[in-house]
């Protein structure tokens, strides 16, 4: 069995909202991810997916519980944790006035890639994602698809063992979305751990090795697709999701 790279134990996050007061956005989530695995977080908007991932990326601090990435505690060694992960989401934008090449170089350096090897790494990524043509154009002039490639390249610029994709296909057209899925698949074959959140069932179905269903901040189920099917007796992920979600609401 491959090694455990990411682990969450009782991860909880409370928010303060000016009209609602204390809000429990994530409620004691536990899970483990391994290398070479795509771990999917499936949930509706506002279910707590992004908050969970942000806690893993140390942008947010857990109110209680803990998580480790590559054996390092998110609360204690945030820099080390971030060094070993790449975070991609639709809200993590690129600097509009840097060129594609500069962007990749910048993120490689900031993430602590050995300074002497940065130029080589940039060349390699530019070639691998087919950015050569527009590598020296400013990001603000690029099309959506081009930006997406640059974004992925900057996410893996420092070659991290763990990759987090937070709703990566939101706002992409079909071709770009498929492209994204292909790239994520490639990362798996390289032995990286990929945590992938989505609210699109088909995407989770197609891509994920294991799926965690999140609803109302709580982790309702976590298993392979087959496992979930057996547990619920449903065929389609939509139905499985609805099964858990309504079950939860009835319960509370």
């Amino acid at each position: 069995m491959s090694e455990i790279t990411v682990e969450a134990r009782g991860l909880t996050k409370m928010f303060y909202d000016e009209s609602r007061g204390e809000v429990r956005a994530v409620d004691g989530i536990d899970f483990q991810c391994r290398s070479g695995e795509i771990f999917g977080l499936l949930g509706a908007n506002g279910a707590g997916k992004t908050t969970t991932l942000r806690m893993l990326a140390t942008i947010l601090k857990p109110t209680s519980g803990s998580a480790t990435v590559m054996g390092r505690e998110v609360g204690e060694e945030p820099e080390q944790v971030r060094r070993s992960l790449g975070f991609y989401s639709s809200s993590t934008a690129l600097y509009p006035r840097l060129t594609a090449r500069e962007t990749i170089e910048f993120f490689a350096r900031v993430n602590g890639y050995a300074p002497d090897e940065v130029p080589g790494r940039v060349r390699e990524l530019v070639a691998r994602f087919g950015i050569e043509e527009y590598a020296d154009a400013r990001v603000e002039k690029l099309s959506q698809g081009m930006k997406q490639k640059v974004s992925i390249a900057r996410t893996v610029a420092h070659d991290p063992p763990v990759l987090i994709f937070d709703e990566p296909t939101v706002g992409l057209d079909v071709l770009n979305a498929l492209d994204m899925q292909r790239v994520i698949g490639e990362f798996r074959t390289q032995g990286k751990t990929i945590i992938f959140s989505t609210h699109i069932m088909s995407e989770a179905e197609r891509l994920c090795d294991r799926i965690a269903i999140i609803h109302g901040g709580a982790l309702l189920a976590c298993d392979t697709l087959e496992g979930l099917r057996t547990a619920t007796g449903k065929r389609y992920l939509e139905d499985i999701f609805v099964y858990f979600a309504t079950d939860r609401e009835d319960g509370t």
Binding site: A57, P78, R82, R83, S91, A93, L94
Partner: peptide
């Protein structure tokens, strides 16, 4: 506003 701060905060820079 542009969302680039979040990108920066997910890097290893302290």
């Amino acid at each position: 506003e542009r969302g680039t701060l979040e990108t920066l905060l997910t890097t290893a820079a302290s």
